[in-house]
Structures are given as structure tokens and as C-alpha cells.
Design a protein around this nucleic acid. Structure first.
Lengths: 254, 254
DNA sequence: GCAATAGTGTCTCTGAGACAGTATTAT
DNA sequence: ATAATACTGTCTCAGAGACACTATTGC
């Protein structure tokens, strides 16, 4: 039998198949609130888990790759494309969805808040950004205006998914540059440090942080320093938020 | 509508579904050949990719989780269970299998050669352990007795899968203890070092290697040292392979 | 001026890498 | 005895952590 013949007579429906979805973990960081880490979640309007909150996601179409499906979901929720995204883990326990067998590929996206202000879910009551708090005993609490989620109010196995993501995030902050994805295009070192601290959940020493990170950054513009006994140094004129009124150095990623 | 009613009327076949498989990367290390890293592969006996070599794997059944499916495949190929295994990545490009849309969850398993000698594929001509060589230009070559595989002789996108696994392996060797999974229960430090070197693809300094690893290990048995000017030290009486005839220290993992 | 925050310099300690040297075994 | 391999000790250098200090800004 030739390959063409084989393919013609092959029956793809010989075996029963599970459904495949992508679940999106869309993280951002809130400059208003001490750069705390936030996650986008959706309130379920139908069965199962009616009234609980879940990660955004959806079925993988037959003509799109996993990455494409994830990018599509991200765009549906936030209006954004060209965003940092990475595959997190695939969850496939038998009973994770009561409707049917569902295998979910989880993707993690990191978005800077300034990119999405107008579009994102603040408007819709059933789509919210939740501040993530991890308790001493490793349990999760998600906070938004008017809503507090404990682990019982999270749909499916999404609590496990979120915990997996947080762990990955914490690990990767230490040895990659993902934190930059959460910052805007321009930022002060203090802001960047706050992002690191929010993800890691602990304070860092200022000078050590700077030492380790400065060579991966570029100063934006020059400004003369007023005092004379300090070395001539690049200072900023441009601005973001408070840093504008103050005179702090603004940085961009190399 | 109650949840029970909803579930009764829900039609799981509303959408077309992809097939889901697990692909297994079963690694071992060959003590006969300088502890080089080896990977189990299967020659395809049917279309598509007839005559090419592929990773072992198979469809995920409806009543088993992904981990269970992977463990089942591992047992089918090697006869082993209770083996170190981790999920690697999920590959879901649209055209990776000409038969139909297939999404593959790749799992990596690490086995010590002594556990599997009798069972494994050395017998069957279409199942072989391949020594992995990575070239300067990042291309792969797989070697077994009588067979040499270049990238063109590897089925599906499995070359990409293998490269992903090698990278993960190299990263994780540096900050975890996975290398121990490839060693037997008892081993000498020199053997363990060879395993590290095989995975990393470069030589390590003996004394530095020992310094870093000794506190994670336990010596097996005591033996008096003959010379007097060295500190009294635990030495071995038991044995594995050559280390027996020589008098080298044998270690077990803490 | 004073408090708060941005930004710099430097000391110490640890751990990685390199290498020299001794002990033991195979022949 | 000699070569090969197991095993140990120590020097150096770079990076992480801690901390003290100066500069600038907001009030």
C-alpha cells in the first residue's frame, strides 16, 4: 500500500478523543498598588461551576496550532497581540471537567498594564483583575474590588494551574528577564525592583539589585547633575508617572 | 436549568476534536561506552514515515490521565514502573501528522541501564538504544549498532522534541539531582561524574565536582585505609563492576 | 529645614574554577 | 617500577548579600 492510499483509507475516528483547550494565565502588575501581581479571571455564567471564577480559555480549533489558539484567546480577552507568552504545563486528569474529558494546555502571558487599560475587563462585572496573595500555608487568595476568592471559589483545577504558574514565574524571574515584560517600555529602577519584589514575595537590597540588573539596561536621556562632586551621569528628562515630577532616571531595556 | 440537567443535555461532540498522544523520551546512560547518553527509538513499520525512526508513544485513553498514559507506554517499552518521569512540553502544530490532527504531550523518563537489561529493545531489530551526539552546528546524530540516524531519518517533528528534551536535561542537571536517576543505586563518584559530563557535553574538574556533590551522598561501607598519613576515612568493601576489583569508594544517594 | 526616596561605594563571605600534589591500583 | 586513576588541599577570582553613606526631591 502506498502512503497516499494508506492516508485515504485511514479512519481518524477509530478511537474516541478527548477535547483539547488552552487556558490562559494573563498576568500583569499594578502600578497603583505597589506593583502587586494581578491575574485576569472570568466568572462562569453557565454550568458547570456556575458562579465560580475560572481562567479564560477555549477550545483549540482544528486549523490552528496551540500557540495560535493561545494568542487568539489572549486577543479576545485583552485586545492585544505580540505579547510575551510561554507554554506552562498540560493538565489532563480524567475528571477535571464534568462535561467530558478535557485536556488543557496552559499558557502564561505577561502584559504591562499600560498597554491594556482601555480594553481590559475592568468594565465587565464578570471579568476582573485579581491581586494574588499567597498565604503562609501555601494557600491562595485572590482579591478584586468587591470580590474575594479563596480556593473553593475557583473553578475546575484552576487553582492548581495558578499555583504551577506562580512557581514557574518565581523561578524564571531569577534567571531570565521575564520581569521586563511586566514593566512598560520605560521605567525607573525602583519600579522594576518593585516588580521583582512582587513576584518573589520578598524585599531586595537596592544596591545589589541595581548592580545585577544595570548592565542589561539602557538609560534613556541625558541630564546634567546639579551637584559637582558626583560623576557626570546620564539622567532623564522624559517621564513616566511620578518619576516625571521627581527627577528619577528612567531606563529602557537593551 | 440545574447542573445535572445541563450535563445530561450537553453534547460533547459539538466540536471536532484533535487526537491526543503521549510521546516518551526514555533516556539512559551506557556504562560500557563512557556513560554516553542514550535514547530509545522505534522504527516505523507502517505509514506514515515508513522506515523512519520515531519516539515510542501512543494515544491517551479516555479513562487514564496523561501521567498514567505515559507510565503505561514506559512499561510497554521497558517493562518498568516507578521510574522518574516528567512532562516535557506539548507539541500541537497543525500538520505534524499527515493522518489527522494530533497533539502530543511529551514525557521524559530517566532509567538506569542496570534496571532494564533483560527486557529492553536490544532484541527487536526495530527498537534500539541510540547514542546521542550533538554536532557543532546544533544538529543531531543518533548512533546504534548498524544504524545511523540524521535528522532526515527521524519521523514527525520528533527531532524538535528530542532537542527540547536535551536542552531541558542540560539545564536541570545543573540545578537538580536528576542525574542520579540515570545512575544505579550504587556508584562511584567517577561514574557519576561521567554521567554529568555525558549530559553536559563537556569535561568537569574532578575536585570541584566532588566538592559540590559529596554532601548529597552517603558512603556505603567502611574500609580501613592502608596509609597512615591520610585521615581515617570511609572506604568501600562492596562493589559494582570494575570498582569492585579496584578499591574505589562506592556511594549511594542520601 | 526635615523626612523620604533615589542612587553610590565598599566590605565580607561563599562558591566556582583551576591546578598541584598524594595515594592507590593495574601491569 | 611505571603509568593510570582515585582522591585531597588550596589559591584565586567573581558574585551575592549586607550595610553605610551621599544626593536629590517633596513638603
Amino acid at each position: 500500500m502506498t502512503e497516499t492510499e494508506f492516508l485515504r483509507q485511514y479512519d481518524p475516528d477509530r478511537y474516541e478523543k478527548p477535547a483539547v483547550t488552552v487556558d490562559m494565565l494573563i498576568f500583569t502588575v499594578n502600578p497603583e498598588r505597589d506593583y502587586s501581581l494581578e491575574l485576569l479571571m472570568i466568572e462562569r455564567g453557565g454550568h458547570p461551576y456556575l458562579g465560580k471564577w475560572a481562567l479564560p480559555g477555549g477550545f483549540v480549533e482544528m486549523n490552528e496550532s496551540l500557540e495560535e489558539a493561545a494568542a487568539r484567546e489572549l486577543k479576545e480577552e485583552t485586545g492585544l497581540s505580540d505579547i510575551y507568552m510561554e507554554q506552562l504545563f498540560t493538565f489532563g486528569d480524567v475528571d477535571r471537567d464534568p462535561r467530558m474529558r478535557v485536556i488543557s494546555v496552559a499558557y502564561m502571558a505577561l502584559v504591562s498594564k499600560d498597554k491594556l487599560h482601555p480594553v481590559a475587563g475592568d468594565d465587565a462585572a464578570n471579568v476582573k483583575w485579581f491581586t494574588i496573595k499567597t498565604q503562609e500555608d501555601d494557600s491562595l487568595i485572590l482579591l478584586a474590588k468587591g470580590v474575594t476568592l479563596t480556593e473553593e471559589s475557583i473553578a475546575f483545577d484552576h487553582e492548581k494551574v495558578i499555583k504551577t504558574a506562580l512557581q514557574r514565574l518565581r523561578n524564571k524571574v531569577e534567571y531570565t528577564d521575564i520581569a521586563f515584560e511586566l514593566a512598560g517600555e520605560k521605567f525607573t529602577l525602583t519600579q522594576l525592583q518593585s516588580i521583582y519584589e512582587a513576584i518573589l514575595g520578598r524585599k531586595l537590597h537596592k544596591s545589589n539589585f541595581r548592580r545585577g540588573i544595570v548592565d542589561r539596561l539602557e538609560k534613556t536621556e541625558e541630564k546634567e547633575t546639579k551637584s559637582s562632586n558626583r560623576p557626570a551621569c546620564m539622567y532623564r528628562k522624559k517621564d513616566i508617572g511620578k518619576a516625571k515630577q521627581r527627577g528619577d532616571q528612567v531606563w529602557v531595556r537593551c
